[in-house]
């Protein structure tokens, strides 16, 4: 039966009228339907989103006139050169080091949870673990930060608990250290680090769990049959197969830490992170070109990271 005959049949039996004619048209020309389906999302994302990104990128090649404070709209790389001034370079370095530490700590905390949930939890326990991880993932970001402000405050529950255990001298010694210390935990880099780990942890657990769940149990049995003990099987069979999940999770923890400006603003020292620098430059300083150049940094770092992750097969675990 030819397409024309089919469509006559369809219009004969369908609703007919305008909608019938339209659905015949979609049937005869699937590309036209595809075009209509794609048009609204592409218009929205293409114009509003990509357009904005290009506008931002464009601005990073402008510069600011230091005397008048006006934006000079001629092409220059001067703004990018400013990123390498010691003050700005420090901000970038501090943010990247924090992102790395947060990622490493997240893996350490997330792995046991993901491993247990994937290999040992069955039935109701598995559902419990899934909900227990997704609930904090989706619950309010600010409320989570607020909770930690309560915990880390000088008069808060953590100091109280450490006091009960007689560990206060240890806390004081830690806070008196340079770099990581401060007046109280909520005013120290240690506090910032803890909150970052807490807030991004579910993003690390879920991909690791997905990767471990994909390892067939027979593979572990085979390695046991071939004489590997539990530790060897874990190190040589499971860990390499779970690695893509770890990398997938690290994409989130790394990227989210690089771009965050709320957490270090509320819990931490006065030393800036990239996100705060962007916010300050575009806001009070009015230096939009430098703010734009700063945002390009996490984008470039993430671009390199994603490229490397793709080569290691991490996207299959997302």
């Amino acid at each position: 039966m030819s397409t024309a005959a089919l469509s006559t049949l369809a219009s004969a039996r369908g609703t007919g009228g305008f909608t019938g004619a339209l659905s015949d048209l979609f049937w005869r020309r699937p590309r036209f339907l595809l075009f209509l389906l794609l048009l609204p999302p592409l218009l929205w994302l293409g114009i509003i989103y990509l357009g904005s990104l290009f506008a931002l990128l464009l601005q990073s090649f402008f510069s600011i006139d230091e005397f008048s404070g006006l934006i000079d709209r001629t092409f220059t790389l001067r703004t990018y050169a400013q990123l390498f001034q010691p003050a700005n370079y420090d901000i970038i370095l501090r943010t990247v080091v924090m992102a790395m530490l947060v990622t490493l700590a997240s893996v350490a905390v997330a792995f046991p949870i993901a491993y247990y949930a994937a290999r040992y939890a069955k039935g109701a326990a598995k559902a419990f673990f899934y909900v227990a991880v997704t609930l904090p993932l989706w619950s309010s970001y600010l409320v989570k930060i607020y909770a930690w402000k309560l915990i880390l405050a000088k008069e808060g529950i953590l100091t109280w608990g450490l006091g009960k255990l007689g560990l206060l001298p240890l806390l004081d010694a830690w806070l008196s250290l340079p770099m990581v210390g401060g007046n109280s935990l909520s005013l120290s880099a240690t506090g910032t680090f803890i909150v970052f780990v807490y807030v991004w942890l579910p993003f690390m657990i879920l991909p690791i769990q997905a990767a471990i769940e994909r390892v067939p149990p027979s593979l572990m049995e085979a390695s046991a049959d071939l004489g590997a003990d539990a530790g060897q099987a874990f190190r040589t069979v499971l860990l390499p197969l779970a690695l893509p999940g770890v990398i997938a999770g690290s994409i989130f923890t790394f990227s989210l830490t690089l771009g965050d400006y709320i957490i270090p603003q509320i819990i931490g020292t006065s030393r800036l992170f990239i996100g705060q620098a962007v916010y300050a430059q575009q806001g009070t300083a009015g230096n939009v070109p430098l703010a734009a150049a700063f945002t390009v940094v996490p984008v470039v770092i993430m671009g390199i990271y994603l490229w490397a992750a793709r080569r290691m097969g991490a996207f299959d675990a997302l």
Partner: peptide, 11 residues
């Protein structure tokens, strides 16, 4: 990162 989306839209 959210800040990229935010500042891109703002500019």
């Amino acid at each position: 990162p959210g800040i990229v989306t935010g500042i891109a839209l703002r500019s």
